[in-house]
Design a binder for these strands. Structure first.
Lengths: 168, 168
DNA sequence: ACAATAAGTCAGCCTTGTTGACATTCCAAG
DNA sequence: CTTGGAATGTCAACAAGGCTGACTTATTGT
């Protein structure tokens, strides 16, 4: 596959060789490990995991979101999500409010304590991201985001853009 | 590299705002989902999961690697890895050879069938990566890789570079 | 009145990670 | 030659966090 691309002064498609693609794949694998390492460490001491982090993140991002909404965003079943939500509510991190217009809906909010944990988690993750951004520079960052967005499947991209539209 | 793009008379550090960092975090989350979706689908029909994919990938990358080596690379315990390896061996995808110099070591290789599955998996993943690369362009790809590398922790970066050194 | 929707819950299963304990095999040093 | 330690394998038990299926409750809209 993929013929050796005329080196130096070649086709301009050197970035599409299997070798380059493989490096990208491995970079994603190792980078994602770093990406999740800090929050994982913080949550460990509280007997929580990545699932709780994700829920906290998106409740923070979209306060008042419903359970169905969150299910779609996280891509898990309501049973899975419910287990996590129960833990968060029991720990006093998340508060549930019955919908005013539609009282079947449960609207999710972070409590003060939940918001504090969210800040702790996202500070840790942002610190790593900030360091990486600073090292790589703004042009690289723009490219980073472009490639990631192109890598999402359509559903995820829609959700990502809907979120992005809200806050930035 | 990367001249500050002085966006609309700003500070030149607009890419380091919390908002930008948050977008990067969410982009990683959604992109990683897309990144793993295709191989997951393929493996589902064979009653295997992501763990098997990772083992296959790195055995392909470093034929003859030992169990200890693979453990360090994947960041899991030998018990976890062993369960996966047993399944792969039973399925005839991986072959174990006793070390010649040190006969305590087990050197891992893909069988023909294992190599075929590896190709199927990496083709699927590469296709998505290739499409993303093509959409984003070579400059973006360079930036993508720079940011990912800067995001790894030191151990991972060492492993990544050791691999990259071999084949690319 | 009734069907559909949002949510919660129970039960059971799977994958993939973890510890701990222990056996085997082998190399190398004393 | 014996013995310590390294590399590997294996058994058991457990937990997190996914999943499906079946069912209930409350509420809404037709």
């Amino acid at each position: 596959m993929a013929e050796a691309p005329a080196p130096q002064g070649g086709s301009g498609l050197l970035f599409l060789t299997d070798e380059q693609l493989r490096k990208g794949i491995e970079a994603m694998f190792f980078a994602y490990r770093g990406f999740t390492a800090d929050p994982d460490r913080i949550l460990e001491s509280r007997d929580m995991g990545r699932a709780h982090h994700r829920a906290i993140h998106f409740i923070h991002r979209s306060p008042g979101t419903t359970v169905s909404n969150l299910m779609a965003l996280l891509g898990v079943t309501k049973q899975s999500l419910n287990r996590v939500l129960r833990a968060l509510i029991a720990a006093g991190l998340v508060e549930v409010r019955v919908g005013r217009r539609d009282r079947r809906e449960r609207h999710l909010h972070l409590t003060e304590e939940g918001a504090a944990l969210e800040r702790e988690l996202s500070n840790a993750q942002r610190e790593r991201m900030r360091a990486a951004y600073r090292t790589a520079g703004p042009v690289a960052v723009a490219g980073f985001r472009q490639v990631l967005e192109a890598m999402m499947d359509d559903d995820s991209r829609r959700q990502y853009e809907a979120l992005a539209g809200r806050g930035g």
